[in-house]
């Protein structure tokens, strides 16, 4: 299982690198789709069918919006040189990478190995949940019953995002 997921995540990294370096913006958007659709397979392998259903539809709608935006504007990317000398850029990159990987090493030390979930909350949400919520689907039980506040907050963020889109697109700006 770990091997299969590692291979798929490797593909996701390749797709992301291609998306970042592609000359044509349209192919960059489609290569970004590789990452999203591979995530669906990862979710299925990780026994999360709810997430897979949501992710596959959301990725499709995101692609529709992005392709529509790219198609009625410019598709070429302007390339240019960096302002700073090459050794400054390379040095900064190595330094930042070293710091981030040291951080990862420190942060991943207390994590349990893959496949041994060590969170104590899981037992409380799984054992006796059917009697408490009456729902067979444990994810729905957590979303709407144990953690209803979170869902209310997320719904509020969704409404705020919609209002933001409406506001941004309605302003009559100066030409």
């Amino acid at each position: 299982m770990e091997l299969a997921i590692s291979i798929i995540v490797g593909f996701m990294i390749l797709g992301a690198i291609y998306a970042i370096h592609a000359r044509d913006i349209l192919s960059a958007v489609i290569a970004g789709g590789i990452v999203g659709y591979s995530l669906v397979i990862c979710f299925l392998l990780l026994k999360a069918p709810d997430l897979a259903i949501v992710q596959i539809v959301v990725e499709t709608i995101t692609l529709i919006i992005m392709v529509a935006v790219v198609l009625d504007s410019s598709r070429v990317e302007a390339y240019g040189k960096f302002d700073r000398p090459a050794w400054v850029t390379a040095g900064t990159a190595v330094l930042i990478l070293a710091i981030l990987f040291w951080f990862l090493k420190e942060a991943s030390a207390p994590l349990a190995p893959f496949g041994e979930n060590s969170m104590r909350m899981a037992d409380a949400y799984v054992n006796g949940a059917v009697e408490k919520t009456g729902s067979i689907n444990l994810v729905t039980g957590v979303v709407f019953d144990f953690r209803g506040y979170d869902t209310l907050g997320e719904a509020t963020v969704l409404v705020t995002a919609v209002l933001g889109v409406l506001t941004i697109l309605r302003i009559k700006g100066k030409r």
């Binding site: 990780l46 026994k47 999360a48 709810d50 997430l51 949501v54 992710q55 959301v58 709608i61 995101t62 919006i65 992005m66 935006v69 979930n117 969170m119 909350m121 899981a122 949400y125 799984v126 444990l138 994810v139 039980g141 957590v142 979303v143 953690r147 979170d150 869902t151 997320e154 963020v157 969704l158 995002a161 919609v162 933001g164 889109v165 941004i168 697109l169």
Partner: peptide, 26 residues
């Protein structure tokens, strides 16, 4: 069973991600 709590968190976050990406596009 696998742990339902992270799945519930991610479920809402995916839909929020779509809304924020659309806002970025706007």
């Amino acid at each position: 069973y696998v742990d339902p709590l992270p799945q519930a968190m991610v479920l809402t976050a995916i839909v929020i991600g779509l809304a924020t990406t659309a806002m970025l596009m706007a």
